[in-house]
Amino acid sequence: MKLLIIEDEKALSDSIVTYMNDNHFTCETAYDFTSAREKLDLYEYTCIVLDITLPKGSGLQLLRELKEAGKTEGVLIISAKNSLDDKIEGLNRGADDYLTKPFHLAELGARVAAIIRRKTFGGANILQLDKLTLNLQERTVWGGDGPIDLTRKEYELLVYFSGNKNKVVTKEAIAEHLWGDNIEMADNYDFLYTHIKNLRRKLIQGGCPDYIKAIYGMGYKFVIEGIPKPYA
C-alpha cells in the first residue's frame, strides 16, 4: 500500500515517513504544490496525507483537482488551523478526515489505518490481527477461543492499537484519542491504566497472546508477530 505525504516541512514529512514505513506502507513525499500534482497525476495511492498550506498553491486546490479527476484515494488533511470552518470545508471538498497540528504520530497512524479500512474493504470489513478478528461494522471481536466481550472504550483502544502495531504509543496520545482534547486531565492516567488492564485480561482470556506491552514510564506497545522490526 502506497502513501503520499504532501507536507512542505521536510522534518515533519520525514517523521511521518519513518513512522509509517513498515511492512504495509510505502511512503512517497512531495514538498510543494507542483511536485504533489505531478505525483498525483502519475501514480495511484492508497491514502494521501495532505497539508493545506503549501508553497506555490493550496492543499484544498489539490483536493478539488483530485476529486474532479474522479480519483478515490483516501485523503487525510493535516493543518495548522484548528477551526471548525476549515474542517468542514476540507471534509466538504471530499477529504476523509482532518487532523490538527501538532498531532501524535500514533493518532495519524490510527486515522490513516481507519481511512484505508474504509476505502479498501468497502462496507462489511473484517480486520485480522494475528489471532484476533475484528468485525468493524458490527464492532465485535473474536479471539482464538471465540467472541470477546469488550466495552466501547476497550474496543476503541484495540482498534487504535491495530493502527499502530508494534509501535510505542504514549499514554497521552491514547488518552487524547479516547477522551478527546477537550477534557483537560491532570497528569494522571490512572483511568487509562484500568482500561488497558481490562483489555489485556480479556484478550488473554479470549485465547490470545499478551499483545500489550507496557513500556516503562512512556506508554504501551501492541506487539504482533513476536519481535517488532528494529527501527531504522
Binding site: S15, P102, V168
Partner: peptide
C-alpha cells in the same frame, strides 16, 4: 499558527525516539 508546525515536528520526533527499544 507558525508555532504549530515546529511543535508538530518536535512531537513527531519524540514519537520516533520512543520507538527505540
Amino acid at each position: 499558527h507558525e508555532i504549530q508546525t515546529p511543535l508538530a515536528i518536535i512531537r513527531s520526533k519524540l514519537d520516533l525516539v520512543i520507538q527505540d527499544a
